[in-house]
Design a protein around this nucleic acid. Structure first.
Lengths: 192, 192
DNA sequence: CCTGCTTGTTAAGCTATCTTAACTTTCTTG
DNA sequence: CAAGAAAGTTAAGATAGCTTAACAAGCAGG
């Protein structure tokens, strides 16, 4: 009932996370991060960068002196690294385990990288590493999974919860999640 | 380089998605959704609800006449259902496959439910259903996975990419993602 | 050491969300 | 049916992020 409000109270917002990553990337690439570099890298105006840097500085994530270069603090660097790692884990999982196209995977990973908890990232890494491994169970999984059907009624060839037909999938309950997800949502356009 | 900007251009924002879900939930629960109900449900002020409803109406997601009840349009209802389904899939996956605690899973699912693409939700449902199923490969996976170690150097018992020690995990490259993720990030507090 | 370009900063303004305070409708009840 | 309570709306103001336009600093070349 109140969880949803914490969205705006995350340590870093989506924008902030990407600014931090931009600074980290530019440091690696060019050895320094200047306002203009960041603006180009992110496709925003320089003034936008200046004001975001002020905010990041207040949060103790970067240091920046007028007309100078931008540096990450250790906190900022840690956050940038964590976000980056989260993105990588997500991307590998989405493409290699779920088999989603690169473009979709990148987009999704970019959107959620900063929102996924460390616990989840770590477990996702573990699962991904396992399912990609040489472990016999992982190989069997890959073969069987590739062969298994997609449609909801059949997306599990026999279920833990209820092997019957009504609840064949074991994840869906009263409504079929697959159908709910696939249901077309008309184009949304703001009027006026 | 530009993907990150689409965050603000999603069909619905985090807030909007939760307002839609609140309306849908209240309709189910009480048969109608009034401004006060929504405000209580979401823990925001009634005036906040009024102004958000204006916005949702402009987007064609709800209808609402002064002092009256709120109704979802078919688009709004579709979106609410899709978001809800996405949340359910995520929650089951996070708790039952990744084994993350309920509280963490709910929080994460709440944060990303509206950001995950349909493709990913659908594939996640398929994977979850499969891994929970009675399929022999799924059973083997569960047994083997439960027994496999967590630490990075060992999180895969032999890897596709490089079975050597340096790259034991197959997901990490130059840096160990597990360590990056676990690295403590100091408390962030805004000054002044 | 002055001229001009490049870089960076300010200022002002927009949108999205949210809040509080004050006001208006609608409903309830004696 | 007239108060007063309950529900809802408006108005005004805050914050986060952006943008454009205009101004300021820094530095190269003559």
């Amino acid at each position: 009932m109140d969880t949803w409000k914490r969205f705006g109270e995350k340590e870093v917002s989506h924008s902030m996370a990407h600014y931090l990553q931009a600074v980290a990337a530019l440091k690696l690439e060019k050895g320094h991060a200047r306002v203009g570099d960041i603006a180009d890298h992110l496709g925003v105006s320089k003034s936008g960068v200046t004001s975001m840097l002020r905010s990041l500085e207040r949060h103790g994530l970067v240091t920046h002196e007028r007309y100078g270069c931008v540096e990450l603090t250790s906190t900022g660097a840690g956050l940038a690294m964590r976000t980056e790692s989260s993105r990588r884990v997500l991307t590998v999982f989405l493409t290699e385990i779920l088999g989603v196209p690169e473009t979709v995977a990148s987009e999704d990973a970019c959107m959620i990288e900063h929102l996924v908890s460390t616990e989840v990232s770590v477990e996702l890494l573990r699962l991904t590493a396992f399912l990609r491994s040489h472990h016999p169970a992982a190989k069997q999984f890959r073969d069987a999974y590739r062969a298994s059907p997609h449609a909801c009624a059949a997306h599990a060839p026999g279920t833990l919860g209820a092997p019957g037909a009504a609840d064949a999938c074991g994840v869906c309950a009263d409504t079929c999640l697959h159908e709910s997800l696939m249901g077309d949502v008309a184009q949304i356009a703001v009027r006026r």
